[in-house]
């Protein structure tokens, strides 16, 4: 990936190479965290594949069309999307060196994350309550595994968010905290990307069965 620029010298016809080396990654942590996210992406790929294989195995039980409440899913999608943009505002405030602004927007992001979790837990509770728990059919096992894993990621994201807020309050916008904010921003946006796959493949396509 290095750019070799050849400048033919006027005399002698010899080639001179000005090899411009790569910038050494100044923030190796961000790259390492990205690679972690990619491996996480493969976990979700296998869960999506499992769901795809099992999505028609209802075992005589309810299908997605019977169970899914798309208005609730739309609400959840909105929560997650808004939390993504508010996290973006937190990053912008951080780049303006405003601790209060960063913490404020991070807190707003956390509130939307908790709203998302609340709605999802209500949905799970409702489904288990009417006898459509994960043990009902292959479809429901795969559904709870996939959506539950995503929800678990959001849960840990919220825990991380609270931790980060405490670190910001104690130390302010030091270099380490900035790095942490960037890492969590990748994690948070990545979860939103996974959710696009979930609401399209699981909820929208599932309710058309």
């Amino acid at each position: 990936m290095s750019n070799a620029v050849a400048t033919p010298a006027a005399e002698g016809g010899k080639l001179e190479f000005l090899v411009k080396g790569d910038h050494h990654p100044a923030q190796g942590t961000l790259l390492g965290f990205w690679i972690y996210l990619m491996s996480d992406c493969l976990i979700f790929a296998s869960l999506f594949a499992t769901y795809g294989v099992l999505s028609m195995n209802f075992a005589g039980g309810p299908s997605g069309a019977d169970l899914f409440d798309l208005e609730l899913v739309a609400l959840n999608t909105a929560f997650l999307l808004i939390s993504s943009i508010t996290y973006g505002f937190a990053v912008l405030k951080m780049q303006q060196n405003s601790v209060r602004g960063t913490m404020g927007w991070l807190a707003v992001t956390g509130v939307f994350g908790l709203c998302f979790l609340g709605v999802e837990l209500y949905e799970f509770y409702h489904m288990i309550h009417i006898g459509a728990g994960p043990q009902r059919s292959g479809f429901l096992s795969a559904f709870f595994t996939l959506v539950g894993t995503h929800g678990l990621h959001v849960t840990f994201g919220c825990i991380w968010l609270v931790t980060l807020l405490l670190q910001l309050r104690k130390h302010g916008l030091i270099q380490e905290n900035k790095r942490r904010v960037y890492c969590l921003s990748m994690f948070w946006h990545f979860l939103d990307v996974i959710w696009i796959g979930v609401f399209t493949y699981v909820y929208l396509m599932g309710s058309m069965v």
Partner: peptide, 29 residues
């Protein structure tokens, strides 16, 4: 520092596009 190239405009473009790209599939189904 290799900070991501964030801008308010970029986030807003992404947000508005995402809202449209989410609303249409939900509406269709």
């Amino acid at each position: 520092e290799e900070a991501p190239h964030s801008s308010f405009k970029g986030y807003m473009i992404g947000f508005v596009a995402s809202v449209i790209l989410t609303a249409i599939p939900f509406w269709m189904v």
